[in-house]
Design a protein around this nucleic acid. Structure first.
Lengths: 383, 383
DNA sequence: AGGAATTAGTAAACTCCTCAGCATTATTGA
DNA sequence: TCAATAATGCTGAGGAGTTTACTAATTCCT
């Protein structure tokens, strides 16, 4: 515990930060409100917030028609557009890029499908062009971006690469952070897609109230992301949540029950989707297939639940559209295995969850820089 | 993030705390040394440390014969004996109580064997008498104790009870915290034994360098404690690490391979110990039994490793005495299952690990109270 | 229309903290 | 005994927040 000594300039910095925190995520506030929220006196807040305005961190809103008795107050609001963050999802089938302001409000989104077999260079070129599109649409240049986070499949090591394995062809030798560092001077972070989706569920999804979350990214591949005590757990080598690699956990083959379900027409684009729909309509074979899928899935989920004792398990990913037919069998299987059944919830963020989580991590990076370096003037940090 | 505003009295408090942090765990220090460590000016440290002395948090050491030229400096030292913490291990076979001062130096230890079948009342009475013994030996009264932590087997819920299950007969209805609260006015905390042992390994054991630890308490029962990002993870209901409850993880029956090993003499007190010794001496059947035990153990360990990606797995508990014959087969099994094999280390704390971990948690409780309430005068906090 | 009530903004006095610098004191070595 | 060295103690300067009091701008009520 390195509690470090504090002098007065540092104290002022801290108080200014606490004003920023009180400003953010709230409607435009009067000085009195801020004083209450930040635990400071009105005069102190006044001078601090003035300084924030001249530095460009806050904006004044002159008093309009007020409905309440007394002199109307000026209101101050955080200048969320002082900087922006970029969240990028490099998926197997698509690339999705989102820009948000400092409050996390999404300014622009762009997506583009990519060939699942595309080589790394082609994929990165596609990423570049989607970024260009988003920035152009938003009227920004790379220097307006203060932090970038990229989501990829496969466990991400400390250097930002997926050396262990990746379903993207040739991907384990490419370094997306280095690639993006040629375009952005700000910090660029790479993270696993399941982990990012978990972060997104806690930020804007169905697990906002929970501090201990197991997130399942369920589709033809199955993965997990863990949030414990409110923060994302990466593991020592960035490979936390990869329980699907255990043979006793049949996550790799679990979707096969759906693919090989008798009665799937050859014309069906996605066998899984067809099976879920059939099960929904009461088809006997389809229901069995789903039950088998749930049985195999449940072993790994139970292992995670028993190991971590989360409050919530969030079912996300491509299959979450069909959660209505999966969750009940899954719950039945889990009760067989677990001591205490956590809540089961279905993700509502769809396929935007990874990009959203990336955005959140980029915003966290910006925040931690503010806490570390204090707020000089709002400019893009250098990575 | 509730960054709260700071005025100067708060700043002084913080600086005083930072002096305490700089004093603790260091040899008696001069004002200049403290100034460097705390990042404050010499005069500031001087007045702060004076105040600490008058409040009873620190002690002066008048200069003795110095070997260096110049006026010899007074040295200040943290008054670790201002308060004490109690760590209690209520085991199946024994009760172990430890007292330490505020720096964590152990002042006194007392243990007593108990009948594994003893009723809760008898067990708690034994605990009481061991506590009495320790306090009497140390010349203390309950009011000298600032925090108490108790280790018990079985998952501990938020109320400090082991309602889910416990191998101690009748234990799931008893409330050890309430029992001890009749004797101590300070905070009393109950925690699972595996979790405490994990904490101990990071504090004084073989995992001091690691932030992500899976601790195995291996004996006739097997359990796990998890430390992630440097802090103990309890899970939402306090049941983290209970992966042994999964049927696919054969932790319950794993030791049976040892018990049922052919050739165990009926006279052997503990079959397991005999098998380990035989395996050490090259007995073929014994080696097979150990291998089978390791194989079953490895499934659960692999699940934890894959789920959490720890830096270190610590093998502790009663069987850790025989780690020399277990670790190799275990490692071989783990390489089959895991993506990346973490380090495997053997606990050296023996059967004191639970009480030590309890001590550490009690000390943490004291520290967090200091951070929260500041340091008034050193007195026992009320729970 | 005018005054009372209410709330916001502002300035001065005050307290508390840290810091820099200088004089003072204690010790060693020549 | 005297220089050199290093710790100590003191005083004044400066910064930051708080309190208090006063002024300004509204609305509500008579």
């Amino acid at each position: 515990m390195a509690t470090t000594g504090t002098d007065m300039s540092r104290m002022r910095e801290m108080n200014q930060l606490s004003i920023v925190w009180a400003l953010r995520g709230n409607p435009p506030s009067t000085v009195t409100e801020l004083a209450g929220r930040a635990g400071l006196s009105r005069p102190a807040v006044d001078v601090l917030v003035q300084a924030l305005v001249t530095d460009g961190w806050a904006e004044v809103e002159e008093p309009g028609a007020s409905s309440v008795v007394g002199r109307p107050a000026r209101r101050f609001r955080f200048r969320a557009t002082a900087g922006h963050a970029l969240g990028i999802d490099i998926g197997v089938h698509k690339i999705l890029v989102m820009v948000s302001d400092l409050e996390g409000d999404i300014v622009r989104t762009a997506r583009r499908p990519v060939d699942p077999e595309a080589a790394p260079e082609a994929r990165l070129a596609a990423v570049d062009s989607v970024i260009d599109e988003v920035l152009a649409d938003a009227g920004m240049t790379p220097s307006d971006i203060w932090a970038v986070t990229v989501g990829v499949t496969g466990p991400v090591d400390a250097t930002g690469r997926t050396t262990l394995f990746s379903p993207l062809p040739g991907w384990h030798t490419t370094d997306p952070a280095a690639h993006l560092a040629t375009r952005f001077t700000c910090p660029v972070q790479v993270e696993n897609d399941c982990k990012l989706a978990a972060v997104a569920e806690r930020w804007k999804g169905v697990a906002q109230d929970a501090d201990d979350i197991v997130f399942l990214l369920a589709g033809l591949r199955t993965g997990a992301g863990l949030i414990l005590d409110g923060t994302l757990r990466r593991g020592h080598g960035g490979a936390a949540g990869e329980i699907g690699a255990l043979k006793a956990v049949r996550w790799l083959t679990a979707p096969d029950h759906l693919e090989s379900c008798p009665g799937v027409p050859a014309t069906a684009g996605e066998a899984a989707a067809w099976v879920f729909q059939a099960a929904r309509e009461g088809d006997r074979d389809a229901k069995t297939a789903v039950r088998r899928y749930a049985r195999d899935l449940a072993i790994g989920v139970a292992a995670l639940v028993l190991a971590l004792d989360p409050q919530v398990v969030v079912y996300g990913g491509g299959f979450s559209r069909s959660a209505d037919v999966i969750l009940d069998p899954l719950r039945r299987e889990l009760t067989k295995h677990c001591l205490r059944l956590p809540e089961l919830r279905t993700s509502t963020l769809g396929d935007e969850s990874v990009a959203l989580g990336a955005l959140r991590l980029a915003l966290d990076e910006i925040d931690s820089r503010l806490l570390r370096d204090g707020l000089a003037a709002p400019t893009a940090p250098r990575g």
